[in-house]
């Protein structure tokens, strides 16, 4: 009994804040909600949502923006971490690499909104090196708008992966590295043949955690693009927010939430469970 008493309060707290909302969302998704009027719709919201091009676009945007951003930040973090993990000179100022992560995300969104759009700094810098000939309107094209979100996310969250990778690399056995080096192994072969396989479980955990956070991307979209142009930067989280709190289609938003919850549970049960099991050993 005693261990259940210890773990009980935490579990009850989490159930209250996840199970209740989950059930509520399922219930509400069966109604068309117009302010205080709830009218029964059965599976109507779901039928509409699977035909809603905006819903599929949001899913696709989340995958595209998230996938590119995750790939980029993993590569940069790994490179920087591998180049500095045993360097005592860099260790002295390594905190610099962490700084973007310590900034409030809403403020980071404003930094990039100003740099790209309102202050035209990025355009000006690109013009001065001759890469573009006139001012770029970053919100005018699908890919440029997505790029601004990717830049903001990569800038802020590469440090998260970096610090985890550095931790993992520092934990690796120095003698194996030393032996390989004495055998004449090059730096890149040490990376590919020793460090990378050793770090695999940790990379999986770190990338999974980051991947989950990226798929919930909201703040940057809300502040920087609001989904423009033409919904090309609308993520799933922003779709739910817009349906619920801008258009007041609460039943519809709940249906989208339930679908997203379903995806989350599948991912959690397969990828995350495995990632944390292998991460432990």
């Amino acid at each position: 009994m005693f261990p259940y008493l210890l773990v009980g309060p935490a579990v009850l707290y989490l159930l209250a804040i996840t199970l209740y909302p989950g059930l509520f969302a399922i219930y509400q998704s069966l109604f068309v909600v117009k302010f205080v009027n709830w009218s029964w719709a059965g599976l109507g919201n779901y039928m509409r949502i699977i035909q809603d091009r905006e819903f599929w676009a949001a899913l696709g945007n989340t995958a595209i923006i998230g996938g590119l951003s995750l790939g980029l930040q993993t590569t940069i973090a790994m490179t920087v971490a591998f180049f500095c993990y045993r360097d005592s000179f860099v260790r002295g100022w390594r905190i610099v690499f962490l700084m973007p992560m310590l900034f409030m995300p809403s403020a980071v969104a404003f930094i990039w909104k100003l740099a790209f759009n309102d202050g035209r700094v990025i355009s000006d810098l690109l013009m001065s090196v001759g890469l573009v000939s006139n001012n770029v309107d970053w919100l005018s094209s699908i890919w440029l708008a997505r790029l601004t979100l990717i830049v903001a996310d990569v800038w802020q969250w590469t440090p998260f992966l970096f610090i985890i990778f550095v931790g993992a690399l520092q934990g690796q056995d120095e003698e194996i590295e030393e032996a390989a080096r004495l055998d004449g192994a090059s730096w890149s072969s040490i990376f590919w043949n020793i460090s990378l396989p050793m770090m695999r479980p940790i990379i999986v955990v770190a990338v999974t955690l980051r991947g989950i956070d990226i798929t919930t991307m909201f703040t940057n979209v809300y502040i920087m693009t609001q989904g423009t142009p033409g919904g090309a930067t609308e993520t799933m989280s922003y779709f739910i927010y817009r349906q619920g709190f801008r258009m007041f289609n609460f039943g519809y938003a709940s249906a989208a939430s339930v679908l997203m919850l379903f995806i989350t549970i599948v991912v959690a049960q397969t990828i995350v469970k495995r990632a944390f099991k292998s991460g432990k050993s």
Binding site: A10, L14, T18, A25, Q28, T215, I240, F250, T264, F276
Partner: peptide, 30 residues
Amino acid sequence: YEFKGREDIGFYILSTRMMAPAIVAVPIFF
């Protein structure tokens, strides 16, 4: 402690971290 369901309870606690805020945003608001 060893107790029945320990792994599942541990994983349930972990999995709440995976939930997107937007999913529960509408219900939590209500």
